[in-house]
Each structure stands twice: as C-alpha cells, then as structure tokens.
Simulated assay, not measured.
Amino acid sequence: MKRILAAAAALLLACGLPARAQDFPSRSVTMIVVFAPGGATDVLARIVAEHMTRTLGRSVLVENVSGAGGTIGGARGAQAAPDGHTLTVGSLGSHSAAPSIYRNIAYDPRELQPIGLIAGTPLFFVVRRDHPAQTMQEFLAMARANPGRITNGHAGIGSTNHLACALFQHLTGVQFNNIPYRGEGPAVNDVVAQQVDSACVLAPAAVPQVTAGTMRGLLTAAAARNPNAPGVPSAVEAGVPDYIFQGWNAVFAPRGTPAPVVARLDQALRAAINDPAIRQRIEGLGSIPAAPEAQGPEALARLVRSEVDRWATVIRAAGIEPQ
C-alpha cells in the first residue's frame, strides 16, 4: 500500500510540474536590471520587457538592483525561486568578467539558466562637451602629460564600462583617475553635467547624448564608424586601431527553472527581438539586435562560457586585481 501511495504521489508531482509550466506566468514577472536606470542594460531591458508583457499576457516589471559592478543584482536574480517569475538582465561585465574580478561573487554565470541574448552594444569613448581635446590624439597627449589627473567615470568595478576603459588604458599607456558609479546612467549624467572628463559608454546611452551634443565622442571602438553616430571616428581613424570592443546584454533565469518555462520565455524574448519595430528601436540606439543564430538559451550558454574564459585572460594581462 505504501508503495502504491508513493508511486501515486510521484505521478502527481510529475504531472503537476508541466501543468504549472503551462500556466506560466501566473503573476507579473520581475526583470532585475543589474545597473542603475539610464544605462545600456536598463534601456535595452525596458525595450524588450514592454514587448514581452504583451506576449506573456502578464506585466514584465523592471527593477534596478545596482552595485558592485552588477553583481549585487546578479546575485539577487540567481538566488530567486526558479519558477520563471524573476529574470535578470546582465552584461558582459556582470555575467562573464565578474568571476575573475570578485573573489566572493555569489553566483557563477555559467551555472545560470540562459534565456537569450538581447543585443550587442558597441562602445564609444566620450568626453564632456567643453573638453579642450578635439581629437583622440589630442586627448592622449593631454592624458600622457597629466597621468592620473583626467577623470574617467564607469559603472562600477567589473562593469563592461570599467573593463572597456581598463583595456583602453592598457593599450594606450595612459592613466586615469577612475571614478566608479552604481551604473552607466549616473556616470553619463556626470559627463553631461561636466563633472567628469571622460567615460567609456555603450551605444544605447552614448548615441542619444552624442547626437544631442551634450557630450562628444572621440572614437567608437570598432573598425568602422557607427551609422547612428557617423560623426564619431572609428578606432582606426582615431589612431588606436587595436581598440576593438563590443559589449552585450542578455536575459538569465535562476538555475533549475523548468524547461517548459524556459521555452516560453525564450519564445517571448525572440518575439521581441524579431519584431521589426523593436529591432528598429535597438538599431536606432546604435546597438545590434541578436541575429537568429545568436538567439536562444544554447547560443547564450556558449557565449557566456567563451566570454568567461576570454575575460579571465584579458583581466590578468591588464593587471586588474581581484576585489
């Protein structure tokens, strides 16, 4: 009799999981953004969250949980119940480089449940609009003549912006007075307010400000100019040809999220990214929506594994000390 009851309980449990997954979502979905409002991660998350709300039939609500280069929000998302109702939008920094920078990080991005890539995010090196340097070569001459005096804002140690400017300093031999913020948005605000000299800023946060003339781009870290900011020279034109850098943003769920729920979230994210209107909005910010072959959980899992290994090597070479 006990064996019969145990078998019946197991059957009910097995039947219950798919039923709950089919009912997903049963309430609003929280999308944790690991940086403060206004940066690339936040902007892209809000674009896809709006579309996913329509697809899922439940609100997808963005919650900004910033600090420690995105790892505070990353830990919150990783430790949430694995039922699909809490997602995390992370970046190259928070979800690939962070394990090499933070000794006590509370999650391994390779062990999370990937949902999918949102977009690649080209990078701009910007200065306050009244900065005396008009070109990158003029800026480098000033920086070399004044080591440690030019201020450079970033989104926190281990963030994509921090890594981008650490690589820039490594390649050019300049030294900045580096100022960490709780996200890219606050750093950009201080460049616009002319409180900080420079920053490495991802396209969704850089392009609107550069276009508006509230800060100036000295280069885009790519071999060619960005079509949404055609007045900004490429890295090659600016005389720093090896400075090629692109960030990314992606959606993750906690480890152990049921496969049917993952499939539903994957479908909703793909619907957003492949909507022509959404792609146009992302492209209008200078970013690159995920191509079909780069979409989905398996493609994101491969990207994260390769990026964790790659950035471990770069971080060691750049002499960045673990925190």
Rank of each mutant, 00 (worst) to 15 (best):
T121D: 12
S306C: 11
R149C: 10
V314R: 15
R281L: 08
T211L: 13
V251F: 00
V240P: 00
T71R: 02
L265P: 03
Q169C: 11
A312M: 12
P322D: 10
Q194D: 11
H162K: 05
V89N: 04
P208E: 09
V48P: 02
Y243R: 07
N152D: 13
H85S: 01
G116W: 03
A238G: 07
R264L: 01
I32S: 03
T172E: 00
V261P: 01
F35H: 14
P241L: 05
A10E: 08
G70F: 08
Y181I: 09
P180C: 00
T30Q: 12
R144P: 03
S28F: 12
I273G: 00
R270F: 11
A193V: 03
T160D: 04
A143M: 06
V43N: 11
Q246G: 14
T257G: 04
Q246T: 15
I244Q: 01
W311R: 08
R255P: 06
S59Y: 12
H85A: 01
V314L: 14
A141P: 12
L13N: 05
A187K: 04
L303G: 06
I288H: 12
G148F: 02
A235D: 09
N161Q: 14
D42C: 06
A203M: 05
P147Y: 02
N226D: 09
V174A: 05
F252C: 02
N104E: 15
R129D: 12
A317R: 15
H170T: 07
T55D: 12
G69D: 01
V192D: 04
A40K: 04
L61F: 09
W248V: 09
A229S: 06
